[in-house]
Nucleic acid binder design. Structure first.
Ligand code: FES
Ligand code: FES
Lengths: 151, 151
DNA sequence: CAAAAATAGGACTCATTCAGTCCTGATTCA
DNA sequence: TGAATCAGGACTGAATGAGTCCTATTTTTG
C-alpha cells in the first residue's frame, strides 16, 4: 500500500481545483458539487487546510475559500503535511526522540532519515501549480456540472 | 502521518541485518533476538519476504534465512512493495482501472501518477547495500545482545 | 435589525486495517 | 526417529481513518 489518507487526497483535489479558478472564492458546498466529493468531508478538509494556512476563508453569505498563496509556492509535500501531519515513514522519525524503543542501539536511524528525506524531497519538487496546469479542464465546464448531484 | 506499515519497517531492519552478515543463514528466533523484535511477527515478515523472492529459506535443524540476491540489487522500493504491496499513494493509482469513481471526468489521474512515480523513484534509488554499510555496527556486538531478552 | 448563508470547531460512530498471536503441517538434519 | 526449523493460514484485539452531525460565530442582505 503505502498510501496517503483520503484527507490528503481530497485536499489536493480541492486545492488543484481552486488553483484553476483563482478569480473568486468557492464555498464548501460548491466545491463538493464540482469535485463530486462528500460535502461533510470536503468541509472538514477545507477547514483543516485553512487552519494550516494554505487557504484563506471568508465567512458569511458570500463567503468561501481561496488560496492564500501563489500555487507555485505550495508544494505537494506541504499539502500532505498539512492534512496528514509530518511525513514520517517510520515511528522513529517523528520529532520526539525516545519514541522508539531501540533508539540507543539502533544503527538504522540515519537510514530512515535518509529514506524519509528522499521521499520528502520528491514531494517538495512538485508544486500545486504543476498539478493545476495539467489538470485544467476545458473551461467551458466551469459550472456545467453544478447541480448534477444532490449532495 | 504518511508512514509505511511496521511490516515494512521490520522487514528493512531484518534485511539490513542479514546484509551485514552474509556468511551464514539466520533462523527466525535468532533474528528476533538480534533485532529485539517480537518473534511471531519477525517470523511472519520473514516468510513473507521469502515468498516474494527477496529471501532464500532453508528448512530443518540448521535452517534459516539468507538474502537471495546481492544487496546492491535490492532496492528499498522492492522491499516495501514486497511487504506492503504496490506503492500506490491514492486509490486511483492501483492497477485495476475502474477503482476510482471519478475516473472518467478526472483530470488529476496523470498527476497522481506523477507524484507516485516520483516517490517510487526516490525509493528505488536507495539499495539495501546503501543501508547496510552505514548501519553496520562494531562487529564485536554480533551476538553479545543474544539472550538479553526473553522472547 | 433580523434572517439566511457560510465558516469554525469539535464530538461522535462505524468500518477498515494492522499488529500480533497461535496452531497445524511439511521439511531437513543429526 | 526426533528435534528444530520453515510454510501457511486462521484468528483476535487495538488503532486509525472516514464520515456524520451538532452548535457557535461571522457576514451579507433584505
Ligand atoms: S530509532 Fe527506531 S528503529 Fe532505529
Ligand atoms: S481517477 Fe481517481 S481521482 Fe482521478
Amino acid at each position: 500500500m503505502l498510501r496517503m489518507t483520503k484527507q490528503a487526497d481530497y485536499g489536493i483535489v480541492l486545492m488543484s481545483y481552486l488553483a484553476n479558478q483563482p478569480e473568486r472564492p468557492f464555498s464548501a458546498p460548491d466545491l463538493a458539487v464540482e469535485t463530486q466529493l462528500p460535502l461533510p468531508t470536503v468541509s472538514k478538509v477545507l477547514k483543516h487546510l485553512c487552519r494550516e494556512g494554505l487557504l484563506s476563508s471568508h465567512r458569511g453569505v458570500k463567503g468561501g475559500y481561496s488560496l492564500s498563496q501563489d500555487p507555485r509556492q505550495i508544494t505537494v509535500a506541504a499539502m500532505i503535511a498539512a492534512l496528514d501531519g509530518p511525513i514520517a515513514f517510520t515511528e522513529c522519525i517523528e520529532d520526539t526522540p525516545g519514541s522508539c524503543s531501540q533508539e540507543d542501539n539502533c544503527h538504522l536511524r540515519a537510514n530512515w532519515q535518509r529514506i524519509n528525506q528522499s521521499v520528502t524531497q520528491a514531494l517538495e519538487d512538485i508544486s500545486l501549480f504543476d498539478l493545476a496546469v495539467s489538470s485544467r479542464p476545458p473551461l467551458v465546464q466551469l459550472g456545467s456540472v453544478r447541480g448534477a448531484l444532490a449532495n
